[in-house]
Amino acid sequence: MDIGAQLLQAGNLMLTGMVGVFLFLSILIFAMRLLANFAAQLKEAESSTSRQKIAKTASSQGVPQAHIAAISAAVATYRKNN
């Protein structure tokens, strides 16, 4: 086998490897973007559901007056001491 044939075979092998790596990385990037979009949609659906639950519980129950009084007293004490 002469040097020309060996260089041609080496070039072929290098080109095949580079195309393989390029294809693998392209598929990986596509899959990661697809997964990121799916996760964003899932998070958006969960947050809208939790916001609806929070809005229902907050509007129906409210904050007890005892908690408001305790927090006000704690803030007043903190401000007085500092």
Rank of each mutant, 00 (worst) to 15 (best):
R33W: 04
A76F: 09
F22D: 05
R51Y: 01
V63E: 04
A66I: 15
F24C: 01
A55D: 10
M32V: 14
L25A: 11
S26F: 11
I68V: 13
A39R: 13
L34F: 10
L28R: 03
V21M: 11
F22N: 04
G62R: 01
I54Y: 00
L28T: 10
L23H: 00
T57Y: 03
Y78S: 14
F22M: 10
A58W: 12
G62H: 12
K43V: 11
S47W: 07
H67Y: 06
A45G: 15
A70I: 05
A70G: 14
M32A: 14
H67Q: 12
S60N: 11
E46L: 07
S60M: 05
T77L: 09
A58E: 10
V75W: 10
Q61E: 08
N37S: 13
S48K: 15
A76Q: 14
Q52D: 13
I29D: 01
L28H: 01
Q65G: 06
F24Q: 03
V63D: 00
E46S: 10
S59P: 00
N81V: 13
I27E: 03
L23M: 03
M32R: 02
Y78Q: 14
A55T: 10
V75M: 15
A76N: 12
A31M: 09
L23C: 01
E44K: 11
A74E: 15
S50M: 12
G62S: 04
K56E: 07
K53G: 03
R33G: 10
T57R: 02
K53V: 07
A36F: 09
A74N: 11
Q65C: 02
V21P: 03
N37K: 11
A66T: 08
R33E: 01
A70P: 02
S26K: 09
M32S: 06
I54W: 08
Q65T: 06
R79S: 13
N37W: 11
T57I: 05
S26R: 06
H67V: 06
L35A: 13
E46T: 04
T77F: 07
S72G: 06
I71K: 02
I27Y: 08
E46K: 03
K80P: 02
L28Y: 07
F30N: 11
A40H: 08
S60C: 06
Y78M: 14
N37P: 00
E46H: 14
L34E: 06
R33S: 15
S50T: 10
S50P: 00
A74S: 09
L35G: 00
V75S: 13
A31S: 13
A69Y: 05
A55L: 05
A70V: 07
S72E: 14
L28V: 03
I71Y: 00
